[in-house]
Computed example of a mutant assay.
Amino acid sequence: MATVQMDIDIDADADVVWKVVGDFATAPERITPGWVSACVADADVRVVTLQNGIIVRERLVAIDEERRRIVYSIIGDTVQPAHSNASMQICATGPGRSRLVWIHDVLPDELAELLYTNMSDAVHVIRETLAAK
């Protein structure tokens, strides 16, 4: 199984960042405006459309408010992994500073390159957007 991990330092309070990242229904558009062109949620499933045309259907697995951690998996559309488990966790690193740890485990391993490319592109937008919160 392949793992892609991105650690993003953010110039914003962890609780403020978590309020955005922890909202399963709206987080993709709110943390990556323009990079995500649409996000439609229905209960525990959301369909995220990226600006590059990739469409990803994701299922919410868990939200841990105390640890500021959300877990979800890709369940289909353009990308159809045999296994997918992703998490985003917000950690306080100091006054007005936080870190987003974004981890995605995926099978088959060949999907890791696509995930790495898209996650790498997204982190720049995420950092700037969340620092402005």
Rank of each mutant, 00 (worst) to 15 (best):
E110S: 15
R57T: 12
M1C: 03
W35M: 12
I63Y: 09
T3G: 05
V123T: 09
T93F: 01
S73F: 06
G22F: 03
M88W: 01
V17S: 08
R57D: 11
E113K: 05
M6P: 02
A132F: 11
D7A: 11
A27L: 09
E29I: 13
A27R: 06
I90L: 03
K19W: 10
T3I: 14
D105A: 04
S98Q: 03
V47T: 15
L114Q: 15
S120M: 06
P33N: 10
D13C: 14
I54V: 15
Q51I: 12
A82V: 10
A86C: 07
T129L: 12
R99H: 02
R57H: 12
Y116L: 12
Q5A: 12
D7I: 04
C91Y: 05
T93W: 01
G53K: 10
D105T: 06
A12R: 14
V16C: 09
L130F: 07
L114G: 09
H104L: 04
E66Y: 04
V71L: 06
Y116R: 14
G76V: 14
I103P: 00
T32H: 10
C39F: 11
I63G: 06
V61S: 07
G76F: 14
V71Y: 05
L130S: 02
A12D: 14
R59Y: 13
I10E: 05
D109Y: 07
T26V: 11
A43C: 11
A82Q: 12
E113D: 14
V79E: 08
V40Q: 15
I54P: 09
V71K: 05
S37W: 06
V48G: 04
R68W: 01
V101M: 02
L130P: 02
V125L: 10
I103R: 01
S120G: 08
Q5V: 15
R30F: 07
P28M: 09
I74Q: 01
A27N: 14
I70D: 00
K133T: 15
V106H: 00
M6D: 08
Y116H: 10
L130Q: 05
C91H: 08
D42M: 08
Q5C: 10
M88H: 02
G22W: 01
A62G: 08
A38L: 14
A43K: 14
I10Y: 07
V48T: 12
A25P: 08
L100I: 04
I70E: 01
W102T: 03
V48C: 12
N85F: 06
A82I: 11
G96D: 11
A82R: 10
A112S: 13
N52S: 12
S120V: 02
T32M: 13
N118M: 03
S98E: 05
H83P: 00
T26R: 14
V20M: 08
T26P: 10
M119S: 00
R68T: 01
H83C: 04
H124Q: 09
V36P: 05
R99M: 03
V61T: 09
I8G: 05
I90M: 04
